[in-house]
Amino acid sequence: MGIDLQSSLCVDFGKFKLQNPIMTASGTFGYVDEFDAFLNVKNLGAIVTKGVTLEERPGNEGKRIFECTAGMINRIGLENVGIQKFIKEKLPKLREKGINFVLNIAGSSVEDYVKLGEISKANNIKAIEVNVSCPNVKSGCLEFGTDEKYLYELISRIREAYDGFLIVKLTPNVTEIEKLAFAVQNAGADCISAINTLKGLGVELNFNGTKVSKSFVQGGLSGKCVKPVALSMVKRIKEAVNLPIIGLGGISCLQDVLEFVAVGADAVQIGTENFTTPDISERLILELAEFIEKQGFKDFNNLKEELRK
């Protein structure tokens, strides 16, 4: 990269540090260095790994991807290698390559998450992001992240098990995001990332004369179309709690990054845009550094302060 970015873009979360505020979102970037063909993964603030569960998961049957206007719907169903394989095969590579990373974890019971927290601690993983958009089997498959009581219990229990940097990724599929953000703060989390995907439905219709065949893809909506929702959520979370926030949802250019920072994000994640423009995250680091220099800000923190005034 052309310019020295080390000090000017640094984000210090205390327990966890980023060399710059540009991260990549879970599920869009693999586990390690899969995007090294297009950029230098080491240059990113951090990558968030694909969501990892206790056991390996094959994911959903049937159609998993649906493109819609300015976005896409996915129903991958958390296909992943499982925590044991992650620790054995992916973790050594991440460390060997010097990639700053956050392990994204998902489960279907509090116990699953606690075990994942314990394993993360035992393996000295510095940061984890908790996906709470998973059905809680014991509460009739209500998602953990939609009920403040369950969410508080879940995060408290993970907090007891894991002493590293604990990020909770909130779901936007709720009425009052403030209450959930507050529950997460009270439970002892270190950071909130927002937002996860919105619930969406893709409808495919095929006509053969008067004969109609249709298929549905019900899943998580992401991409440019969700940005206004994400901005609104980040702003509301910022006003409700004191935790640092990692903003995500439809970011595809520097202007988007600045908007998220302006409403409360301390760092951002790039998700769906990785599919469209695979080197976008590295490009954004450069563009951000150039912008800071060109406009005359001292560093990223200074830019953040001015954007928040």
């Binding site: 869009t28 693999g30 694909k50 159609k63 991807i65 493109e67 896409m72 996915n74 296909e79 990785n274």
Partner: peptide, 27 residues
């Protein structure tokens, strides 16, 4: 239908016989 095109998103998977691992038949 593909999203990433490089194997990371798992959007375009099909079922195949697991030739290397006899214990699990499908992957």
């Amino acid at each position: 239908v593909m999203a990433c095109g490089i194997g990371v998103c798992r959007g375009c998977v099909i079922k195949v016989k697991d030739m290397e691992n006899g214990a699990r038949l499908v992957k």
